[in-house]
Amino acid sequence: MPSEQQGSASTMPTREFLTFVLGDETYALDIMTVKEIRGYEATTKIANAPEFIKGVINLRGDIVPIIDLRIKFGIGEPTYNEWTIVIMLNIHERIVGIVVDGVSDVMNLEDEEVKPAPEFGVAFDSKYLHGLATLEDHMVIIVDIEALISSDELGLFETA
């Protein structure tokens, strides 16, 4: 029961996903939410913010928060080097950057290819997941990135 493509712009049966790597696992998110992909750069720390909020950067005049999902979900090692990648997302007219270990591919998925997510075994709470898919014998975890980024758990957005 892939939860209905909540907030997705596309009504096509096939949707495009950007896959990225966190630790040993491959994740995917709806490519329509991706603004751009860039290298990691030093951030300005924000006082009294949780550790996974790395700080803010200047994205062509916008002050944009950068969060490290590896820290938030305890996946992989939070290292920062020239290969560290930040995916800039457009969520509810806000821009948020997420730090990942790498970006691998763009995949097309039909709705029926998406299997329901298990209740356990994944670092993310299942309410942030669309489901699972298989790509060349790899399991890909499809993240409901809008739900995740705007969740109270991340506390990125002030709940009005």
């Binding site: 924000i46 006082a47 009294n48 913010a49 916008d62 002050i63 944009v64 002030e158």
Partner: peptide, 16 residues
């Protein structure tokens, strides 16, 4: 620049 535009209000900080 507004910090709240993409993030949220931070105590002690008026903006960026």
């Amino acid at each position: 620049k507004s910090l709240e535009r993409h993030y949220r209000r931070v105590d002690g900080v008026a903006g960026a």
